[in-house]
Simulated scan of single mutants.
Amino acid sequence: MIVFPNAKINIGLNIVEKRPDGFHNIESCFYPVGWSDALEITVAENFTFHADGIAIPGNPSDNLCTKAYQLLAEDYILPPVNIHLLKAVPIGAGLGGGSADAAFTITALNTMFSLGISLEKQQDYARRLGSDCAFFIENKPVYCYDKGDQFEKMGLTLEGKWIVLVNPGLHISTVEAYAGIKPEKSEADLRELLKQPLNTWKDQVKNDFEKSLFPKFPVLGEIKETLYKHGAGYAAMSGSGSTLFGIFEEETDLTTLFKNFKVWQGTLK
């Protein structure tokens, strides 16, 4: 079976408070985008995991795809499989690429072997692998809260709008990103702000990480400014960085403008 784990963007990201367990409670909208990896799972004599494309740091035994298989194998009888991942979504880029790979491993195994795992239980397995993994099980726009692993359906649709994602190649760790954050309650309800027209979001829908990361990495602010300059209705950093995105009303090819960076652009669904 071959599946294509897609990335997501954060539209708005408020860091609300630090939790007793060391994590942070957040408020954000997760929205799926088309930038994808490719993941192939086949039955094999022994379990193996192999990755091509963008180099993935760490031991293959620690990869989230491997952990997803092992998690299901604790509760279900699974044959050995070979997992082959072609990595295209940048790592440490605020796009949830690794989380998507893990979630798609769960959904693919469920389908391949007719495990009959409910949507809710698949999300529970995914939550054990990472805060935003569960989002990719259903893979639809949601308002998220707590650690980013609890969801509320929302009516936001950007279908037909054009998105440009720009990644300057910086790897910003979660620890580094949170080091500059001072959590505080939101002044406005993000769900209400996102009901307003796209062109009103610029001064109201914010990513709290930008305040501390833009001075540290000036290129991030420069990319955001360039996206606005070339007609984006809304532009922001996704997650804890370092990818910036711009949402446009009409198709806008910016590949030559950002020729030194990784760029993905396409239509939102």
Rank of each mutant, 00 (worst) to 15 (best):
N6L: 02
K8M: 07
G12N: 03
N14V: 13
E17R: 14
K18R: 15
R19Y: 00
P20E: 09
S28K: 02
C29D: 02
Y31K: 02
L39S: 11
T42V: 15
T42F: 11
V43E: 13
F49P: 00
I56F: 03
I56G: 01
I56T: 01
P57G: 00
P60A: 02
T66N: 01
K67W: 00
A73N: 07
Y76C: 00
I77C: 13
L78E: 00
H84A: 12
H84I: 08
L85G: 03
A88H: 13
G97Q: 02
D101F: 07
A102N: 02
A108Y: 08
A108D: 01
N110S: 07
F113I: 13
I117D: 07
I117Y: 08
R128A: 12
R128S: 14
R128V: 04
R128Y: 08
A134D: 09
A134Q: 09
E138D: 14
N139C: 01
V142G: 01
Y143S: 11
C144Q: 02
C144K: 01
C144L: 07
D146I: 03
K147Q: 10
G148S: 06
M154T: 13
G155N: 13
G155C: 10
E159A: 15
K161A: 07
V166G: 08
V166F: 02
I172D: 11
I172T: 08
S173I: 09
T174Y: 06
V175I: 14
K182C: 09
K185L: 15
S186Y: 07
L190R: 11
L190F: 05
E192P: 03
N207M: 08
D208R: 00
F209N: 09
K216W: 04
P218K: 06
E222M: 14
K224W: 04
E225R: 14
H230T: 11
G231H: 04
T243H: 05
F245I: 10
F245D: 02
F245R: 09
G246Y: 03
I247W: 02
F248A: 06
T252A: 08
D253R: 08
L254C: 02
T256P: 03
N260G: 09
K262E: 13
Q265R: 12
